[in-house]
Design a protein around this nucleic acid. Structure first.
Length: 876
RNA sequence: GGGCGGUUAGCUCAGCGGUAGAGCGUCUCGUUUACACCGAGAGGGUCGGGAGUUCGAAUCUCUCACCGCCCACCA
């Protein structure tokens, strides 16, 4: 027996445990492979609403495909998330008044591992609460032994192929974390600043003015550049200027990088602190003068007064000194963008260091080709433009980080600095022995790899690569990747590049890109705004099924998900509705009869419901195949609530409460049949409640994800559906008329039928009981002469006998109004149908529809006219 | 500066060539034993402006306006 009230909390953990115990989430070992790699959440993170969306979508797909009979692997795991995790642990240390430097590398890493062990399971537990049916027995962590081995192997391979190399060049330097970061980790932030116009005195007298937003960098200037054809400044080319506040002189050089239209036309060149200037410097063999320490303070290349001072604090002092020297020409306030670290929120400096790089352009070419030729495809397609643009302009990928938490770079250095790249220390020593002819002490590179390097291998490293495992053979390439657009560059592109390179083929066929979850007004959720919706609180309050269904129905392609709790509440109500409908069925003796086939029924009601569910199943199946989760959810919502609950169940009460035992038995079988189908169709969206219902009502004794997906044959004959549509229309019209005339909905009226065509006569006779109950009529007389209010439909006119309540004038006015509406519509149709172009050029079925509609309206109009005539005689 | 997306009922959004839809909210009525986390009914939109293509445009093209996001840009 189902409980009277639906209580998600009670059933969720029970049903989840039941599925896991049944091994329902593991690949079944045969069938078409279907594999999704779960984007590994940060190991120390916790579930946020974005996970709610992405994991719901993935879970819908895998549950659906299990039901289709595929061999499904949803591979879960977690990411070590280099900077993010290190930050968290450093914050913990700070509470104890400690720094990682005080602790030392080894001790610090122990602390991080401790933290990982302690909090690493949290998010996986939370994913279970959402209902995620991943194969947890296969869970991986990016720093597992196997995955680390894969990382080292890829690094060594790419190094040997010349695709990983060490280089000294400008990188984005985070002065807070004191590490290099990649271009992607830099955010351009609009900032209020100023152009400082500074006069650089010419050695030969006079001066040349440059403009800069970073005056403190002048200590690193190596030249001033002007355009070789600059109308007024080109004459200075070759002269020397005195660099203000220093005793250096630097040359004025000609370079077309100097844009005559910008600034003063002359531009200071600071090769060690600006990406463009670096290139100019290389062209002109300029000295690269590094003026910064790793923490962003000025070093001994600047005048003593500024040494050790943070470059941003030094800026106003430099400006002041220039002013005092009479060299500050003007200060022009300006809003410009400043690069900021996405984690540190500190100003990023171009900084000259030696780092490891991946030659990304080489790897990008086949990754571009794979999407161009459709081997991998983006859904929705428009994201491929973003992908193309980035890969076509890709820069070398800086993969080394001056952090401690991560995969340590597998490179070892001899005392003389020679570098040996190998998968382990022994192999490095061997190389060194070969080189030097004797054993030498080697020191491993201190840096670790960018987190995204290891996640780039996720589609195959989790399957056991480089071993040739059965899982790898079965599940690579993965079927579909589901992720947000925010990591297309960070992750998707890298997986494609590395997957194609290492595996010789793309990592996944489809790439489904979903949107971001925002609050109900479209604002990004953030703690500071206080508009964060915690998925776990939502689950506590409304249940996981409600949250999942909300996510699914709001996940229209190409649009952000604006989540409001009102919507979640609405879909909680939907779950309750399903629960109560099932309770009704149970209380009325519904049962699943394997022998029962509604297609063979002689009762239009059941055939009609079969048809409705069959069409819903088709819609849902097609929508899921096309990743249109909202369409699938919408169709199910409508079918269950409107069709099944509002109409079928109400109709069913007639036979359930009636005296015809056979009719009652069939209705019980149909209720069982329908709920079995509906719970299966709903299962991918609402796994908990559907499993609970199916188990309790004896539809399935195994978890529904192992049940089969409804594949129903379409009905050739739609007569039953037409009959029921006719009955529904009559009922709706009677109800509306009662409401309009202020007659109590429950008032049992006598009706009489006029002007019925043969089809209508047949349906009225067959479905009389349904009509009486739902329209609240006490009796239907055939063709009785009685005055009353008319419900006019195409097939017949139904006169409601309201006796003395009838106000003839009012009724005439109502029917006149209806006639006006009909005439207006007919005029529209006529304008179409009388247009030769329309008749000639529109598709035949469209013209046919218009003609049919016109014919219907003509019939209706005729019936209204007759009704009015009869009313007239009554009045007269 | 380059690119992508958006502008449809009070709110949040579907629909994307064939007579404008949903949920929530609003209004009226309703305890007919599955469900008030409910039922019945109603109101509400010249689909951002303009032009074009078409027999026909919310839907395709162009254009303008406004709103997002991404990339590039620290003279």
């Amino acid at each position: 027996m189902l409980e009277k009230t639906f209580s998600p909390k009670d059933i969720e953990s029970r049903q989840y445990a039941r599925s896991e115990a049944a091994g329902a989430f593991k690949p079944k070992g045969n069938g078409t492979p279907y594999c999704i790699m779960m984007p590994p959440p940060n190991v120390t993170g916790s579930l946020h609403i974005g996970h709610g969306l992405t994991m719901t979508i993935q879970d819908i797909l895998v549950r659906y495909h299990r039901m289709l009979g595929d061999d499904v692997l949803w591979q879960p795991g977690t990411d070590h998330a280099g900077i993010a995790t290190q930050m968290v642990v450093e914050r913990e240390l700070a509470k104890e008044g400690l720094t990682r430097q005080q602790l030392g590398r080894e001790k610090f890493l122990e602390r991080v591992w401790q933290w990982k062990e302690q909090s690493g399971g949290t998010i996986l537990e939370q994913l279970r609460r959402l209902g995620a049916s991943a194969d947890w027995s296969r869970a991986r962590f990016t720093m597992d032994d196997g995955l680390s081995a894969a990382v080292r192997k890829v690094f060594v391979d790419l190094y040997q192929q010349g695709l990983i190399y060490k280089d000294t060049r400008l990188v984005n330097w985070d002065t807070k974390f004191q590490t290099a970061i990649s271009d992607l980790e830099v955010q351009a932030v609009d900032t209020q600043g100023a152009y400082y116009h500074i006069a650089y005195p010419l050695v030969n007298g006079g001066h040349i003015t440059v403009a800069t937003t970073r005056p403190e960098t002048l200590f690193g200037d190596a030249a001033v550049a002007v355009h070789p054809e600059h109308p007024t400044l080109a004459q200075y080319i070759g002269q020397q200027v005195r660099l203000p506040l220093t005793d250096r002189t630097i040359p004025i050089i000609a370079d077309s990088y100097a844009d005559p239209e910008k600034g003063t036309g002359a531009v200071k060149i600071t090769p060690a602190h600006d990406f463009n200037d670096f290139e100019v410097g290389k062209r002109h063999n300029l000295e690269q003068i590094n003026i910064l320490n790793r923490d962003g303070t000025l070093n001994d290349q600047v005048p003593a007064a500024y040494q050790g001072m943070d470059r941003l604090k030094a800026r106003p002092l430099v400006v002041k000194a220039l002013e005092q020297a009479g060299l500050l020409v003007k200060v022009e306030p300006v809003t410009h963008t400043v690069p900021m670290g996405d984690r540190s929120n500190s100003v990023i400096e171009p900084y000259l260091t030696e780092q490891w790089f991946v030659k990304a352009d080489t790897l990008a070419a086949p990754a571009l080709e794979a999407v161009r030729t459709g081997i991998s495809r983006f859904v929705p397609e428009n994201w491929q433009a973003t992908y193309f643009h980035w890969l076509e302009n890709i820069q070398p990928w800086c993969i080394s980080r001056q952090l401690w938490w991560g995969h340590r770079i597998p490179a070892w250095y001899a005392p003389d600095g020679q570098c040996f790249v190998a998968e382990n220390a022994d192999a490095a020593h061997e190389q060194a022995f070969t080189r030097f002819g004797k054993h030498v002490d080697l020191q491993q590179d201190n840096d670790v790899l960018d987190t995204w390097f290891s996640s780039g291998l996720w589609p195959f490293s989790t399957l056991g690569w480089p071993e040739h495992t059965p899982a790898l053979a079965q599940f690579y390439p993965n079927t579909v990747l589901v992720t947000g657009f925010d990591i297309i560059f960070f992750w998707v592109a890298r997986m494609l590049m590395l997957g194609i390179h290492c595996m010789g083929g793309v990592p996944f066929k489809d790439i489904y890109i979903h949107a971001l979850v925002r609050d109900e007004h479209g604002q990004k959720m953030s703690k500071s705004k206080g508009n964060v919706i915690d998925p776990l609180e939502v689950i506590d309050q409304y249940g996981a099924d409600a949250l999942r269904f909300t996510m699914a129905i709001m996940a229209a392609q190409g649009r952000d998900v604006k989540l409001s709790l009102a919507r979640v509440e609405g879909y909680r109500n939907f779950a309750t509705k399903l629960w109560n409908a099932s309770r009704f069925a149970e209380m009325n003796g519904a049962r699943l009869d394997p022998a029962y086939d509604p297609r063979l029924s002689t009762t239009a009601l059941h055939v009609w419901l079969y048809d409705a569910i069959q069409q819903t199943a088709i819609t849902v199946t097609a929508a899921l195949d096309a990743y249109k989760f909202n369409e699938a959810a919408e169709a199910l919502y409508h079918c269950l609530w409107n069709t099944f609950c509002d109409w079928y169940i109400e109709f069913a009460k007639v036979s359930l409460n009636g005296n015809d035992a056979d009719a009652k038995a069939e209705t019980q079988a149909m209720l069982g049949w329908a709920l079995d189908q509906l719970t299966r169709l709903l299962h991918p969206f609402m796994p908990f409640i559907t499993d609970e219902l199916a188990q309790n009502m004896g539809f399935n004794n195994q978890p529904l994800t192992l049940a089969t997906w409804p594949m129903l044959a379409a009905l050739a004959d739609q007569q039953a559906s037409r009959d029921m549509a006719f009955v529904q229309e009559l009922i709706t019209q009677v109800r509306a008329l009662k409401a309009e005339m202020n007659i109590a909905p429950g008032a049992m009226l006598v009706a009489s039928i006029k002007q019925a065509d043969t089809d209508a006569q047949r349906v009225l006779q067959q479905q009389e009981a349904l009509l009486l109950r739902m329209a609240r009529l006490s009796r239907i007389d055939q063709d009785a002469e009685a005055g009353g209010m008319a419900v006019v439909v195409v097939g017949c006119t139904l006169i409601l006998q309201v006796g003395a309540v009838l106000d003839v004038a009012k009724e005439q006015a109502r029917l006149d109004k209806e006639t006006v509406a009909i005439i207006a519509e007919m005029q529209q149709l006529d304008s179409k149908l009388s247009n030769d172009n329309f008749v000639a050029r529109a598709p035949a079925h469209v013209v046919e529809e218009y003609r049919n509609r016109k014919e219907e309206l003509t019939l209706k109009q005729g019936k209204i006219r007759e009704t009015l005539a009869r009313l007239g005689s009554l009045a007269g």
